[in-house]
Design a protein around this nucleic acid. Sequence first.
DNA 1: CGCTATTTGTGCGTATGTATC
DNA 2: GGATACATACGCACAAATAGC
Lengths: 251, 251
Amino acid sequence: MRSSRVAGQPRYAVVAQALTEDILSGRYSVGAILPSEHALCTQFDISRHTTREALRRLQALGLVTRRAGVGTQVKSNHIAQRYVQVGDTISDLYQYAKDMVLNVLEMTDIEADADAAALLGCSKGQAWSKLRGVRVTDGGDEVVALMDAYIARTYRGVLGDIDGADLPIWSLIESRYGVVPAEVRQQISATTLSRAEAENLSAREGDPALRITRHYLTEALDVYEVAISLYPAERFTYSNTLRIEHLASVS
Amino acid sequence: MRSSRVAGQPRYAVVAQALTEDILSGRYSVGAILPSEHALCTQFDISRHTTREALRRLQALGLVTRRAGVGTQVKSNHIAQRYVQVGDTISDLYQYAKDMVLNVLEMTDIEADADAAALLGCSKGQAWSKLRGVRVTDGGDEVVALMDAYIARTYRGVLGDIDGADLPIWSLIESRYGVVPAEVRQQISATTLSRAEAENLSAREGDPALRITRHYLTEALDVYEVAISLYPAERFTYSNTLRIEHLASVS
DNA sequence: CGCTATTTGTGCGTATGTATC
DNA sequence: GGATACATACGCACAAATAGC
């Protein structure tokens, strides 16, 4: 009978380790097809069940994909170490909205001119709605941010929900249309307040401020909302935690 | 003989779906132990192999954990939608370092006083090294950022590698010590340049700037490096893309 | 403390279904 | 259709981890 363990490791782990090393070292290059399950069974003198358990590990590591009728194909020659934004789901992006409401100052329907099209990442002439508002603390006594937002005409129905809302606009769109942002692109820069911006924020012209621009994209990578927020320096700090994602080890 | 399929779905998928619904609906609450594999086998009239495949799916969704001798425990009652920082590995955090080198202005060994301990998240009196430097474009003709960095004394060996390096300090630590940041905490705020800062940056006192503070933590959540970078507003924009992570469906 | 019962983990054998070429 | 490869599914046995007596 075959010994079921080698060096205290399960047999499938030994096989997974060997195959992993072969892939990382380039002996099986990306795109190549690994030996079939049957071939691996004889090569390592193990049952098909054990072979499949080993290949399952490689799959979990993102090294291979498997398809019936084709085989096990090498997809990557390195073990990805991804960083994940922590916090339950997307709530870190809420941070600015907690205990705050958005008061709308003005709202207009627009068709994208050249400048807007460049900002929105869409073609000229597309139909959007634009709004300007301020985020104020729940009591309404302190203005935290001035926000310009662009919303694709498809989701125009949320415009009525926005004034006084304590949620971000993308969240209102999710509630009403069931559309979740598949991708969020942020840009953060420092700037100084113009005269008009300072007035809306009860601040002084020339004060330093943080500008955060967020593009919200659908699964098809179409931009459907853009929000540009302006925070006077002392009223807001953006913070962010990334945690390494440990993929299951092969050992 | 039992039919191997129901409604075109594999049997394990049917079971996984049923169990998932039971968990999401709260019939099995968080912390509860699911019926044993044997119990599920008789309950659904399936083999243990099929039961285990179904439970594997729940595990992949992050709904349960399994331990020999204990059982299958419910860990979550919702399917997480995590956002992942895109880009290969951690390279988005490189962005500021591409084609730039760090010129060290001064380096000192310190022991954390109250202020430093608060900043570093360590206890008073701990041994650190502190350095100040500027990131300049590769030609050396333009200063992009002024940086203060604190490095735990354990990794003091990298100090000699830093001057002229075109990599972030954490990367130098990784090369020399094999330590990868398990968690990175970032804080981004707007500020204005002090007189001394402006001189180092060839800018004017009072100019707006972006301040990015990053804490790098080990797996044990010990802070081992802190970097505080100051970027004059027009010289840098922080950007960031989060993408939703689709976990495998149970069906 | 050791013993036992329970539960999951590992491993083998076999058969059939489904996808691809 | 046939050959090949992975997917699903049944069965069995023993090992390892855990909890409770």
